[in-house]
């Protein structure tokens, strides 16, 4: 990459992209604008200067690949605390469908996802399961260990492939004992997950399926940072705690309102604002908690 030819877009004091006007001037219409709006563009070329301008997400990702830390919990640690963990962190792939823990199973590793998503499922006596949380790059899989429990009360199953840094349980406990910043980050994260679980429980009880599906799709969109993604009927049924036919009905309703397109698990958000309007207020609350 040539340092003189690639420039990140600048932001103003409110954090907005000051080059938005530039982009809109360069990309006026057509498939380029459509791709830009759906988050599928990494860079915009400016013929006047002969320069490729990176969009902020692409800039962040390239910086991360250049040695910065993808997982937010690890990234928040002071440099020396992070470096003291490095020797114990092992990069591993996360493969969709892979089960990291079963309920009651002893936790052998904790996982700091770099990307991808891990679904946290509560399994009840008759084998039915309900998703009670989702962990991505902002978090940690294996939080019970940080709170003194040895076994997982839930099933942790990879829902979106990616990669993670994992650490053996014994090493994690030692690291936690010696690093106050790690403790602080993990307790803050555990508290946020607790509030999220409470919010989700109330949402599942009181809000209609269509609004909850909209909330779920928007949350997934924020995590994968794309308006297009894949979620199976089965997974959505687990997430929403309903039967598959309920997912079909709710997805059809959102489709008829031209908010999404949904075909065999391939989801595209067509109207993000409209979908926000269709979701319950829990989306914004959960979003704020996640950030």
């Amino acid at each position: 990459m040539s340092a003189t030819k690639s420039k990140p877009l600048e932001r103003n004091q409110r954090g907005e992209r000051v080059a938005n006007g530039r982009i809109l001037r360069l990309v006026k219409s057509g498939p380029e604008l459509q791709a830009l709006e759906s988050g599928q563009v990494d860079a915009v070329l400016d013929a006047a200067t002969g320069t490729a301008y990176l969009l902020p997400d692409a800039q962040r990702a390239l910086s991360a690949a250049g040695g910065q830390i993808a997982n937010s919990l690890l990234a928040a640690l002071p440099r020396e605390d992070y470096q003291s963990l490095l020797a114990e962190l092992e990069p591993v792939p996360l493969t969709s469908g892979e089960v990291l823990y079963e309920p009651g199973e002893r936790i052998r590793h904790v996982y700091f996802p770099n990307d991808g998503q891990v679904s946290v499922l509560m399994v009840v006596a008759d084998g039915k399961a309900l998703e009670v949380g989702l962990v991505g790059r902002e978090g940690l899989v294996g939080i019970p260990l940080a709170l003194g429990a040895e076994a997982s009360p839930v099933r942790a199953q990879v829902q979106g492939s990616g990669s993670a840094l994992r650490m053996k349980a014994a090493s994690f406990r030692e690291a936690l004992a010696r690093s106050l910043p790690l403790q602080r980050e993990l307790y803050r994260y555990a508290y946020a997950k607790l509030v999220q679980a409470r919010q989700t429980a109330a949402c599942n009880r009181f809000h209609p399926v269509e609004a909850r599906l909209a909330r779920c799709l928007l949350t997934t969109r924020d995590r994968v940072r794309s308006d297009q993604f894949h979620l199976t009927h089965e997974f959505l049924a687990l997430t929403l705690g309903i039967r598959r036919v309920g997912v079909t009905n709710a997805a059809t309703a959102l489709q008829q309102r031209k908010l999404i397109s949904y075909h065999r698990g391939n989801i595209q958000i067509l109207d993000r604002k409209g979908l926000k309007g269709a979701s319950c207020g829990c989306y914004e609350i959960l979003r704020n908690l996640a950030s």
């Binding site: 990459m1 030819k5 830009l36 563009v41 860079a43 070329l45 002969g50 490729a52």
Partner: peptide
């Protein structure tokens, strides 16, 4: 073609955004 290395090549080919 990596446009960060070859922006002019991409512009000459009528490319406005990547990918």
């Amino acid at each position: 073609i990596d446009v960060l290395e070859f922006p002019l090549r991409a512009l000459a080919d009528g490319i406005l955004v990547t990918p």
